[in-house]
């Protein structure tokens, strides 16, 4: 009996050791590439993009709006780092200013979304009952509207512009956030420390803002970081189809749209803004994932 037990034990220990080697080696690689280096990589790129956006007027070698018809579709040179587009504008300068535009637009959308969804989600989750049911049905209505249709409708009535695009996006996208925040608020509301806060004579607003919001702030920040990537992408697509920022604004989506006629002869016109979008979106996603992992541990 004892020998049997010991034998089983040996087998188990060996199995665990084997597993460990596997796990550690694969975990090690995953760790190095994805969980440890990636968020730092993302953070560096995000910081770089933010720096570029802030210092755009200093960094950009040329005026992004200056048309020079004698220098159309030129290759890279010391004056035009990445060459010029079909109107002779400096591509590098437009990309740099585009970073500023993308960040400003996406932060506007994000801010507007948060301003709408946080109070609504908190109220709905905390109040519960009929208030919750009513708010959630309204949210469902907004949730069912397709963003692009909404943007088309707003652009059709108010005219296409960056401002209207921001309104269209925020007015549709807040609903999914309100739902998530409501769920988190409901979960928090059932915690014992909320009862303790009531015993400590806290008012409803104190409970909502000082206890519930404070405890769900970090998941909200993570969500926001993860969302910026897709917002930037959506802004570029809106501008591409002509519903967002209007030419000649230096914006990545517009640059793509402007250069689509030259895709066969001058493909680099599309490749540059495309790469800029990919890098930005990827950087924000890496940063968001990293934050998520860091906070969940």
């Amino acid at each position: 009996m004892d020998e049997d037990d010991e034998h089983m034990m040996q087998i188990k220990i060996q199995a665990i050791k084997k597993l460990n080697v596997w796990f550690r080696s694969s975990n090690g690689i995953i760790n190095r590439i994805f969980t440890q280096k990636a968020p730092v990589f993302g953070l560096v790129i995000v910081a770089l993009i933010i720096f570029i956006a802030i210092a755009a007027s200093v960094i950009a070698p040329n005026d992004p709006l200056k048309v020079n018809m004698s220098m159309r579709l030129e290759g890279p040179s010391s004056l035009y780092w990445l060459g010029t587009d079909n109107l002779g504008r400096c591509i590098a300068s437009r990309l740099i200013w585009g970073a500023r535009m993308s960040l400003i637009y996406s932060l506007c959308v994000l801010g507007l979304m948060m301003v709408i969804s946080i109070p609504i989600g908190l109220l709905s989750g905390y109040a519960g009952g009929r208030v919750d049911t009513f708010i959630m049905r309204v949210t469902d209505i907004f949730l069912s509207l397709p963003t692009f249709l909404m943007a088309l409708a707003i652009a059709g009535t108010l005219g296409p512009s960056a401002k209207n695009m921001i309104i269209a996006m925020a007015s549709v996208w807040w609903s999914s956030y309100a739902r998530i925040i409501r769920g988190m608020a409901m979960q928090m509301k059932q915690q014992d420390f909320i009862l303790a806060a009531k015993a400590a004579a806290c008012t409803h607003s104190q409970i909502i803002f000082r206890h519930i919001l404070r405890n769900i702030a970090s998941p909200i920040i993570i969500m926001a970081t993860l969302e910026i990537g897709s917002i930037i992408l959506a802004i570029a697509s809106f501008s591409f189809i002509g519903l967002g920022a209007q030419p000649p604004t230096p914006e990545w989506g517009i640059m793509l749209s402007d250069s689509k006629e030259f895709i066969q002869t001058q493909p680099q016109l599309m490749i540059y803004p495309g790469i800029a979008i990919i890098i930005t979106v990827m950087a924000f996603n890496l940063l968001g994932e990293g934050l998520k992992n860091a906070i969940q541990d």
Partner: peptide, 21 residues
């Protein structure tokens, strides 16, 4: 609220009655 000063409660489950933040 004004009555809370005189009615307090010691909760059973001390691990969850403090706000973790």
């Amino acid at each position: 609220r004004p009555l809370r000063r005189n009615i307090q409660m010691i909760f059973q489950n001390s691990s969850s009655v403090f706000d973790p933040s």
